[in-house]
Structures are given as structure tokens and as C-alpha cells.
Design a protein around this nucleic acid. Structure first.
Lengths: 252, 252
DNA sequence: CGACATTTTGATGAAGATCAAACTGGGTGG
DNA sequence: CCACCCAGTTTGATCTTCATCAAAATGTCG
């Protein structure tokens, strides 16, 4: 990892190839580092929006609290993810962002992000691409909590996390870090912690997945994808730039 | 409604005030009209992305199909909504867009949208704002299907639809059109049609809401918001431009 | 070791799915 | 104008999944 921005660049280039200048601009933008403890909030719902945090290390999540105190995690932030570019446009946060593990971030001011987007249209497009992928993921989460059984849900989530980590080079073999408790998984899957525990045990017993000591190991990837109904298309990791790209270049 | 773009402009200005030039550019872009029957597809999952449809009249939805044939509606498109700006960036659709009623759209080519965004940075920002709001709505849907009971879910959805229609001037008093069957409502709420029916009857009997003949009438708005846990903040309809706006102007 | 969080196990209960069938109402064609 | 059809709604009965409550087991860290 040569620079703080390296993982972000690697991620963005799944969508929009960047030029040398744009990469340098990103690297220069990501110098101010900040650290957060596990289970701390980066941003709270209702806050006026501040700068953008680029996750350098560690795991975070978006979540919303319900009036009865229950919590729904509506998405994960993994290293290389920006949270939350939307603060540059919207006035206040409609949800919170919290850490799951210890997290190291690079902080970009809103002004700086907007400047980057004005100065480098391709970066603007890359940021937009990233938010679109995020939205796509959120939509898949609606399907997940809406229509899948507990077992399928967990399988699908594991597939997603693994695929996303793989895309930024953070898996080793068939396993990856996933520093969350079963209770936190329950918040993401919209299940009770007890039921999550039962699902996880069943996955272990059937030899599908082992989730233990903050680490996820997928023993049978095909089977897991199959039970979870996982189709990675919604992650748009396949160099998915629309072919109009060249025309745009000349138009600009 | 003076022009095809009028409702879109009205919607976008909830987020980003537009200048005369930008409005004219939008109006000029929205001349090519297309019509769709009820329950037709505007776009199918897996399609290479095409142009953008601006909904002029009628209701549509995003949906995903599961392998067992069940369907999850992951969002509604109401008049003034664009579906789907993301086609300008992503290569293929990860979900389908279908009509609920008869729908009239204005079609913009991808090239034209990209041109508009290059030429008018403020429009680019407005489009981005719109996609962020959409994402915010999707997130709220995760909470809805994940953590709320059937009754609460329906209440929340009704509040959302009403608020969104109100923001583009499509409500009359305490009622609005909602041309969907109970089965389609079930697809959006991740419930069975039978259960939706029971919820709707209960709402009628308690005098909260009447949903009948494609029309939604809210008799007790406060109570409905309260049971649904509805807080309109996530729709960002409150002139939510971040205060950085003026700085940006000078930076450009 | 002791305190504390987390995982595991068991028992019971509730929300909502599923299946099946009856009812309603608008539209069509004879 | 009536008979019929079909989509949508309503009702009832049964079954599953998962939540909830409670408590024991395990593990971790000072």
C-alpha cells in the first residue's frame, strides 16, 4: 500500500479508469489521518454534514436507530470506501456512521471534495459511480431482508463482504476478516442474535462457512453463493464503464 | 404544467436551485415522449444501459426478481422522477424498471445527459442530489422491511408516497392516486398479499387510512406518521442544499 | 482470579406465510 | 340485458419461521 489513497483508487478504477493527474490529486487529498476506536460514531444522524472520511483500515457501517432502540445496519464500509461523499450535497445526515473495529480514516473537507470534482470531471464521475454501486448494494439489502430466509440472508451477506474485500485485495485464500459480533450481524440481517447464532452453527455443521474469532472462512463458495442466491452483478466490479466513455472524452 | 420538464425541475430545486439557462436546457432535453402500458417493463435487469426515462405521468417501480419467482419492489418512481440516471455510468442494469399504471415518459439519450452534466455543473450536482435522495429512500426501505411490523410498514410506505407526491403537487387534500393492487403492495412491503389485505382492512376499520379504487386517503396523518415511525428527513425535501454552495460558485 | 461480553442451549409464543375457497365488481360477448 | 369471466379482494384454517425470555457455558482481558 504505497499511499493512503491506493485502495480507493483501486476501487474507483473498477468503474472509471483514472489518469495520472487524478490519482495524484487523490493521493494529495488523503493526507490528514484520523483514528477512531471500535464502536465509536464517525457521524451521527441529524448532524450537519462535515467532511468525508475515507476508510484506510478497519470496518464501519451505516445504521439507523428505531424508536424502540433497535438498530438496523444498512450497509458496511470496508477499507477503500468513502463515507460519505453525500455530505457534500446533502445538508444533514439521515443516518449514522459507526465503527465496528478500530478504524483509521483520511479526512477530506467538503470543499476539497467539491474542488476535486470541479477540477477533474473524471473524478466526479468516479465518485458518482461509487455512490451508484453503494445504492445498488442497498437495494440488494432490501431484497435480502425482505425476501430471504435467515440462512439465505447470512449466506448472501457473507458472499457480498467477501467479494467486496476481494476487490480491494483484502482476502487471503478463502477467508477474510469480519470483526463483528453475532449481535452486530443480527443488526445487519434484521434477525435476533439468538437466531443468527443458530444459523451460524448450522453453517459450521454443514461445512459451508466458519465464522469465528472475527474471521470468516468460506469452505464451499459455490454452495454459499447458491443458497444465498448471490449474483455479484450488483457490485459492478467487472470494469463496468459504459462504452459511451470515449465520446465523453471528446465532448469535454 | 407548462413543459415536460416542469415537475422534474420542481423536484430538483428541492435540492439545488437552478438558473434560467439550466432550466431551459432541461426543457429542451425533454421533448421526445414515449408511452408505456401498465405492467410493462421500461428496462429489464441485465440489459445494457440505454437512455434515461423521465416520468411525466403515471407510476413505475424498480424491482428485482428472485429465483423462486417472487418479486421485491425496491422503490417507486413518481412523476418528475428520472429513471435511471445511473445508466449513464453503469454498464448494465442490476434490476428492472416496470410500470404500475400507464406511463408517459420523456426519453433522454445517455449522451445528452452526460452532455448536460458537463456543460452545466449545477445540473450535474442536481442529478447527483436526486440519486442521493433515492439512495436515502432505499436505505429507509431496508429499515422498513427489516424492522417494522406489517402494519407499521404499510403506514410508513403510505406516508412516503404521500409526501413525495405532495412535493411535486400531486396530492389533493388528504388523498392521492396510488394505482397498485394489494399484490403489488405486498411486493413492495415484503409481505404476502393476504396479509396486506388484513392490514389494509384494519387501517380502514381504525379510520386511519382508506386505500380503495387506486386511491389512498389518509384520514389521520399524525397517527399514521406515528405508527409508521415516519420522519420525513430522509426525503431531504426541506431545501437541503449544504451551505457550502456559495463557496463552490466562486471556486468554479 | 473475577468481571464482563459473547456465544450457546432450551422452551414458549407471536407474526406472518401458505393453502384453499368464497366473494366482489367491472368488462366482454352473445 | 344477461351470463360469464377474470382480476382482485376477502375470509378462514393451519403451519413455519423467527422472536423472545431465561439461563448456562465459554472466552477474554485486566
Amino acid at each position: 500500500m504505497e499511499s493512503n489513497a491506493a485502495r480507493l483508487i483501486r476501487k474507483l478504477e473498477h468503474g472509471v479508469p483514472l489518469g495520472h493527474e487524478e490519482k495524484r490529486a487523490l493521493e494529495e487529498a488523503c493526507t490528514s489521518v484520523q483514528r477512531f476506536a471500535a464502536r465509536d460514531d464517525l457521524v451521527k444522524e441529524g448532524d450537519p454534514t462535515q467532511g468525508v472520511n475515507l476508510i484506510l483500515d478497519g470496518y464501519a457501517c451505516r445504521y439507523k436507530l428505531l424508536s424502540d432502540g433497535r438498530r438496523q445496519i444498512v450497509g458496511y464500509f470496508l477499507p477503500g470506501d468513502m463515507c460519505d461523499v453525500r455530505v457534500c450535497i446533502l445538508k444533514r445526515m439521515d443516518h449514522s456512521i459507526g465503527t465496528l473495529s478500530v478504524v483509521k480514516t483520511a479526512v477530506l473537507s467538503r470543499e476539497h471534495v467539491l474542488f476535486l470534482m470541479e477540477r477533474y470531471p473524471r473524478l466526479a464521475r468516479a465518485f458518482w459511480w461509487a455512490t451508484l454501486v453503494e445504492e445498488s448494494i442497498t437495494r440488494e439489502w432490501v431484497v435480502n431482508v425482505g425476501h430471504r430466509t435467515a440462512f439465505e440472508r447470512a449466506a448472501h451477506l457473507f458472499c457480498e463482504v467477501f467479494a467486496r474485500l476481494q476487490s480491494v485485495g483484502l482476502t487471503t485464500g478463502n477467508s477474510c476478516e469480519l470483526p463483528v459480533t453475532q449481535t452486530e450481524l443480527a443488526d445487519a440481517l434484521a434477525l435476533s442474535a439468538v437466531h443468527v447464532n443458530r444459523v451460524l452453527m448450522e453453517m459450521r455443521h454443514t461445512g459451508l462457512v466458519t465464522f469465528r474469532a472475527q474471521r470468516l472462512t468460506i469452505h464451499d463458495h459455490d454452495a454459499l453463493r447458491s443458497v444465498g442466491g448471490f449474483n455479484s452483478g450488483y457490485l459492478h466490479l467487472d470494469g463496468s464503464l459504459a462504452p459511451v466513455h470515449s465520446e465523453l472524452e471528446s465532448a469535454g
